[in-house]
């Protein structure tokens, strides 16, 4: 487990939990990324700008975290993330993630963090199902096909 980084994983998770708490206490909204992004359409008045602002904050935060993080924590590398997929593979995966999160009303943040914290039976079910199909998919891609 040479890549295991429990300290920064837990600190990052706590920051995500604080961001979700802030959005809930101040705005009464759940920090589920797929719902914030996906329900921009169909357009409803007064519901678009805050979603765009929240989503725009994510890459800004990622840039801050990636520049400040390695200076504080030795276990955070300074290298940029790499993708293991061709552009066509990325499109297929993107479509599956988009369709799946819309049908299932949530992703790793909405169901995985907020829903589990609310002890929602729907979210426990969703997390169990998407973890299972993701594990099977990675197994096939990494150990069967190649």
């Amino acid at each position: 487990m040479e890549n295991f980084t429990p300290l920064t994983a837990t600190i990052g998770g706590i920051l995500i939990g604080l961001a979700a708490t802030m959005l809930w206490v101040f705005n009464g909204r759940t920090a589920g990324i797929s719902n914030i992004a996906g329900t921009v359409v169909p357009l409803r008045q007064g519901s678009v700008l805050w979603r765009v602002l929240f989503l725009a904050g994510l890459p800004v935060g990622a840039v801050i975290g990636s520049s400040v993080g390695p200076a504080i924590f030795a276990e955070i590398p300074t290298t940029l993330p790499e993708l293991g997929l061709t552009p066509i593979g990325l499109v297929i995966a993107g479509v599956l993630v988009g369709v799946g999160t819309r049908l299932g009303n949530g992703c790793t943040s909405g169901h995985g963090v907020c829903g589990l914290a609310r002890l929602s039976p729907r979210s426990f079910t969703a997390v169990g199902v998407f973890m299972a199909t993701a594990v099977v998919t990675v197994f096939i891609v990494r150990h069967v096909v190649t």
């Binding site: 980084t5 994983a9 990052g12 998770g13 995500i16 802030m22 101040f26 935060g61 955070i76």
Partner: peptide, 17 residues
């Protein structure tokens, strides 16, 4: 709040890699 929450969320994702 929406913007700041997004930024903190993004910092968390990057720190956690």
């Amino acid at each position: 709040t929406a913007a700041v929450s997004g930024v903190i969320f993004g910092i968390g994702l990057a720190i956690a890699r």
